[in-house]
Design a protein around this nucleic acid. Structure first.
Lengths: 220, 220
DNA sequence: AATAAAAGTGAGTAATCGCTCACGTAATGA
DNA sequence: TCATTACGTGAGCGATTACTCACTTTTATT
């Protein structure tokens, strides 16, 4: 079971960087840049080709349409962002290791983990956030990953902590919504809306953790 | 002072609906629809004209460029969304009326107020959220309104409640970020990401208020 | 009623778009 | 070595784009 899960994950993530021609890799990099800067609809295959240093026809040798190129870039981001919830190892650590045996520990690990991921993938996250509004393929993959993978795991964790800690009587769905809203709100503000503001990341992360922890705490 | 402020606000909001030709009003309505559905870049002036029932040239009689049309639609939304913070009356009520003299009351009024606004202006909010990423005019107006108008008022409220209630030792800026993240996270999830989910709005609002209130509460 | 200004029209234009295709070149495999 | 396949190219195509302009119609002004 553990091995099966790992294989599935590794295979999934490998698909992304698998067997890309040097020129194709340049195309993907250029496309990420241009899509992120101008948005999918305003990005021209002409500019992508120029930035990648290839002929425009080369793009369509590897991708049937411009939209195909977008999808091949965006879908893996959804899986990668959800990885902490997908990995068996992650939940094992939560339930086993002492320092992770609190809601606080889970939150801290989660937020620091995703902070690093977003920090290293700002353009990709930006593309995902923007284009999910207009492309049903992205919406469906997103819903599928969250409904089938993230929600059940998060529910498990919540049920576990309900016994050992004093949690508010919110439904697990609401707790997930509030948790993700707060984390995503921080990351989007930090890296997309106000990246030039002088941030004390360590402190802001601590504030954010404390906010979520107290917010989800029960009244007694 | 009070009268002066009111005039400024009224004037500001009047600009929006001021002296629009019937056909121009149809153009604006059609543009909101198309921009919201397809995004600014993918929206064609041709389709806007057809939906408005006017000739394409009529659009450019009133708006120099397609982008001008976008700006004329989006900028007022920023002001209208920030209205509760702009209105003198709002803060007066907070500090004077008995039932609003708590952080809880402020939050409840704020969230219910903005809930109704977003509910009645989903397409406009969608356009704002999407296009702010690509248009510096929108970004600058947004920053200006929040830095000059919203932040100072919110700070005042926070300083007031710091004395009467047990608030966490977060900077006011962080509190504003966390508050808006949570409210906006709820509204975006509710009306844009999962509008078809069966929502119990009353309960979700109460959960959200409780989450923010407890999250901003100090530890003692 | 005469005049001017504003509103509305739609055919037309230059530019750009995503994408194709015929043709080279490099890699692979028997 | 030769044949096959995959990779790469760029001129070129039909469609669409935002926007213009000469013109008509409506509204406002005196």
């Amino acid at each position: 079971m553990e091995q099966q899960e790992k294989d599935w994950l590794i295979e999934l993530l490998d698909i992304t960087e698998k067997e890309l021609t040097p020129k194709q890799a340049k195309i993907v990099q250029a496309a990420i840049e241009v899509f992120s800067e101008k948005g999918f609809a305003a990005a021209s295959t002409n500019e992508i080709a120029k930035r990648a240093g290839v002929a425009e026809g080369t793009i369509f040798r590897h991708y049937k349409t411009k939209k195909d190129l977008l999808i091949s870039i965006v879908l893996p981001v959804i899986y990668k962002f959800a990885v902490p919830f997908l990995a068996e190892k992650f939940l094992n650590e939560i339930f086993q290791k002492e320092n992770l045996d609190t809601m606080d520990g889970l939150l801290r690990k989660l937020i620091k983990n995703r902070y690093e991921f977003v920090k290293n993938n700002v353009p990709l996250i930006k593309i995902l956030l923007q284009e999910i509004a207009y492309h049903s393929e992205i919406q469906e993959t997103f819903k599928q990953v969250f409904v089938e993978k993230v929600m059940p795991r998060y529910k498990m964790a919540v049920e576990h902590f309900r016994k050992t800690e004093n949690l508010a009587a919110f439904p697990a769905e609401t707790m997930l919504r509030l948790t993700i809203s707060t984390i995503l709100g921080f990351l989007v503000t930090r890296f997309i809306i106000l990246p030039d503001y002088t941030w004390d990341d360590e402190k802001e992360i601590e504030y954010t953790i404390q906010f979520i922890r107290n917010g989800l705490k029960g009244n007694d």
